[in-house]
């Protein structure tokens, strides 16, 4: 039941097509390291303050912490981080539940 030759060829062709598609799409991404890229704008195209610029400017005033990443992680987006901790905890519980040995399995 190995992959048949035709299937394999089709798969390679689609991978190649995807590569070409992504390389073409890269052309319209903002150039690497451009300070004016949309993600770094102070006021974005919709007229709202950009998140990255806001965090850089007001992180120290809001939380007296020089490390902006820590402030975003622990304060601005702390609800997100809570979800993250729950994910780690859920993974530990899931590993235990998958790998435990049930009573009727022990022989």
């Amino acid at each position: 039941m190995k992959m048949s030759k035709g299937k394999k060829l089709l798969g390679f062709a689609s991978l190649l097509a995807l590569t070409v598609l992504l390389l073409v799409a890269v052309d319209s991404l903002p150039k690497r390291g451009l300070p004016d890229a949309p993600a770094h704008q102070v006021i974005n195209a919709a007229g709202n303050p950009g998140a990255g610029a806001y965090f850089i400017r007001s992180a120290y005033e809001d939380a007296a912490t020089p490390n902006m990443v820590t402030v975003v992680l622990g304060d601005y987006r702390s609800f997100d981080t809570l979800g993250e901790v729950v994910v780690v905890f859920a993974a530990a519980i899931a590993c235990y539940l998958i790998l435990r040995r049930r009573e009727d399995e022990e022989k």
Binding site: P35, A39, H40, A51, G52, I56, M68
Partner: peptide, 10 residues
């Protein structure tokens, strides 16, 4: 803003 990398993606 250009003095610091964007902290949000990090």
């Amino acid at each position: 803003v250009g003095n610091y990398l964007n902290p949000l993606p990090h």
